[in-house]
Write a protein that binds this DNA or RNA. Structure first.
Length: 188
DNA sequence: CGAGTTTGACCAGCGC
DNA sequence: GCGCTGGTCAAACTCG
């Protein structure tokens, strides 16, 4: 999970610092738009690794997928959700996850949604903790994990789980900047 | 005072 | 079976 590769080369500079953010558009109501990116777009931009099949990878399998790919734009984990502390709760299917890396000095990307932090864990082989956030919008179950890489402290890995069922609550300047970058890669 | 953060504890899955 | 690890909970705390 810690090995998602989500960088894309800039068409003009060739530098790889372009984040891809799901569901970030005034008219993107869900991750579906992001899923549309999968495969190869008409302008030659590759969006590898975004898959929607219901394959349920085991933990080791996920690691292997990550290690064997030189680049891919995300992966979907459909693990079963852990019921947490509540006993007797039925297992749920884990929602698809989308990960991307962003080269930034700030840990929290202002993506326009309101997030509530519900946990932080020290992660093996990483000196930076992983933070767990939930969307605070009523009825919206989207979660995200934020983690800075040990190998490259400038890179923040954000993993989204689920799809927002509401629109962006605020449009931030920083996010507009990211959005403007994204549009370079959208096939429409 | 409400919303968000911190943090230790708890739980379940997985590998050995 | 046991220990490790990731994920979640919830009480206490902070902040605006």
């Amino acid at each position: 999970m810690e090995n998602y590769q989500m960088f894309f080369p800039c068409p003009s500079t060739g530098q790889s610092s372009y984040p891809l953010i799901p569901n970030y558009s005034t008219n993107m109501g869900s991750f579906n738009a992001f899923q549309d990116f999968q495969g190869e777009s008409s302008n030659g931009t590759s969006f590898l690794g975004l898959r929607t099949e219901n394959h349920v990878p085991k933990r080791a399998e996920v690691k292997q997928i990550s290690h064997n790919r030189s680049s891919f734009s995300g992966d979907i984990e459909t693990d079963q959700v852990k019921p947490g502390k509540k006993k007797g709760q039925l297992k749920k299917i884990r929602k698809p996850r989308y990960a991307f890396q962003t080269r930034t000095q700030v840990d929290i990307l202002d993506d326009g949604y309101r997030w509530r932090k519900y946990g932080q864990k020290a992660v093996k082989n990483n000196k930076f903790p992983r933070s767990y956030y939930r969307c605070t919008y009523q009825g919206c179950n989207v979660k995200k994990q934020v983690q800075r890489l040990t190998k490259d402290e400038g890179i923040v890995v954000t993993t989204y789980e689920g799809a927002h069922n509401h629109s962006i609550e605020k449009q931030s300047d920083t996010f507009e900047h990211i959005l403007s970058q994204m549009q370079i890669y959208t096939p429409f």
